[in-house]
């Protein structure tokens, strides 16, 4: 039909670049690494790296979880509340003499159950995901606050020590992130990947194509719930105690990380890799603001502004280069 005079080679290169939705996030990440080499003292030391990954692993994990939901055309803003809930349950159980292992398992089961609840409300009761997870945020967060009205308790020293150490020469949280990514890789080779991307693009069409829409929705919210649970254990290792509110901001930061990472909130587009770099970039923003000797009361403001600029940049970039098709 319509033939274009463009060089085929060039267009195929452009095409494959345009498929790399994670490029803006990776670029931002690298830029901020370079920036921090200059402004942050001891940036490239293992001590700093441990601190960095310890603090940011929860965000990375939750970003991985929420990515899957976003790709499938949903959204989950309850992950912060799930994180809080698992954190306080874990600390309470440990405080009551439970072993680390059994408390962790109970925590993960609770996280999974929370995800399943989200999945049922969205998948089977057809409540729009934003509203559904908005309501469950109030439910999960409420339970967390009920269990532990004020911060307290302490995590087992074993967890804190391992989590804040080098393991096989790398910061320990990296292994948890890699494990989560491996789960995703397994999913990628199953039909679920095709189901997720098709649903994200058009739920109704996917249903007509015999995609098990409800079950895939149940899966994706359960998956994100479980990752929030793992993130909560990391958060516990990082803050060393229970806090009914500490995890709440993670829900929104994770979504911002995904957007910067090239995942479209309208679904069906983007990659997990982008979200990981988006989350690491957000972590670097905080490092940068802390290093920049800004009036401490204005640090929140500046990190907010940098995130805003990052999201604007990512959005503009992806519109310019990714929507050629």
């Amino acid at each position: 039909m319509i033939t274009h005079g463009t060089d085929k080679k060039q267009s195929s290169v452009l095409k494959s670049i345009s498929k790399m939705t994670f490029l803006p996030a990776v670029t931002l990440f690298i830029l901020f690494v370079i920036l921090n080499i200059f402004i942050t003292r001891r940036f490239l030391t293992s001590g700093f790296m441990i601190g960095f990954f310890t603090a940011n692993a929860p965000l990375v994990l939750i970003a991985i979880g929420v990515s899957v939901v976003l790709i499938g055309g949903g959204i989950d803003i309850s992950l912060g509340a799930i994180t809080c809930l698992v954190n306080v349950v874990f600390i309470s159980l440990v405080g009551n003499g439970w072993s680390f292992g059994s408390a962790a398992i109970v925590g993960l089961v609770i996280a999974l159950v929370c995800g399943v609840i989200n999945g049922i409300i969205v998948g089977f009761f057809r409540v729009p995901p934003l509203l559904a997870t908005f309501a469950t945020t109030s439910v999960f967060g409420g339970i967390a606050l009920w269990i532990m009205p004020t911060p307290g308790g302490s995590a087992p020293m074993g967890l804190i020590n391992w989590y804040n150490s080098l393991f096989l020469g790398l910061p320990a949280p990296i292994f948890i992130i890699v494990a989560a990514l491996l789960i995703w890789v397994a999913i990628k080779y199953s039909p679920i990947r095709i189901w997720l991307y098709s649903m994200g693009r058009d739920e109704k069409k996917a249903y007509m194509s015999a995609v098990p829409v409800k079950w895939t929705q149940l899966f994706m919210y359960s998956f994100s719930g479980l990752l929030a649970g793992i993130g909560a254990l990391c958060l516990t290792g990082s803050i060393g105690s229970g806090d009914p509110l500490a995890g709440l901001p993670l829900a929104l930061s994770a979504i911002a990380a995904c957007v910067i990472g090239g995942i479209s909130l309208s679904g069906g587009k983007g990659s997990i890799l982008g979200s990981v770099f988006g989350a690491l970039f957000l972590g670097l923003v905080i490092t940068t603001v802390l290093s920049a000797k800004i009036n401490p009361f204005y640090q929140d403001f500046f990190s907010g502004v940098i995130i805003l600029v990052g999201v604007i940049g990512a959005t503009l970039l992806s519109r310019k280069f990714m929507n050629k098709a």
Binding site: P191, R201, A206, S209
Partner: peptide, 28 residues
């Protein structure tokens, strides 16, 4: 008439989406 194709999937994935062949019951 309402096209059921997904622009974010390849042609072959689109063709087979209704019955994805799996190996070992798990992988495409």
């Amino acid at each position: 008439q309402e096209l059921g194709l997904f622009t974010n999937l390849s042609v072959e994935e689109n063709l087979c989406i209704c019955q994805l062949p799996v190996t070992r019951g798990l992988f495409v």
